[in-house]
């Protein structure tokens, strides 16, 4: 399982986007979006940035490490 938590499903619901719609906008497959939302796959930086651009938020507002970080 991924070490990340994410708000992709929540933001999709906010913007009324289906998994297929989001996938088409970032050039991925619907299955990849489903894997990310389920926590079974951690997207690359490139894919995370593309997702953030679609929702017009920063990457940190979508993805976070489980249990937080040791910094600060």
């Amino acid at each position: 399982m991924s070490e990340l938590t994410n708000r992709v499903r929540e933001l999709r619901a906010r913007d009324r986007l289906s998994q297929g719609d989001l996938a088409a906008q970032i050039g991925a497959s619907r299955q990849t979006i489903a894997l990310i939302e389920r926590g079974d796959y951690s997207p690359s930086i490139v894919l995370a940035l593309k997702i953030a651009a679609v929702f017009e938020v920063s990457v940190e507002e979508i993805f976070a490490l489980k249990g937080g970080t040791d910094n600060g």
């Binding site: 991925a28 497959s29 299955q31 796959y41 894919l47």
Partner: peptide, 8 residues
């Protein structure tokens, strides 16, 4: 043609 998760 596969995306990164499919390649994984």
């Amino acid at each position: 043609k596969l995306d990164e998760a499919e390649k994984f």
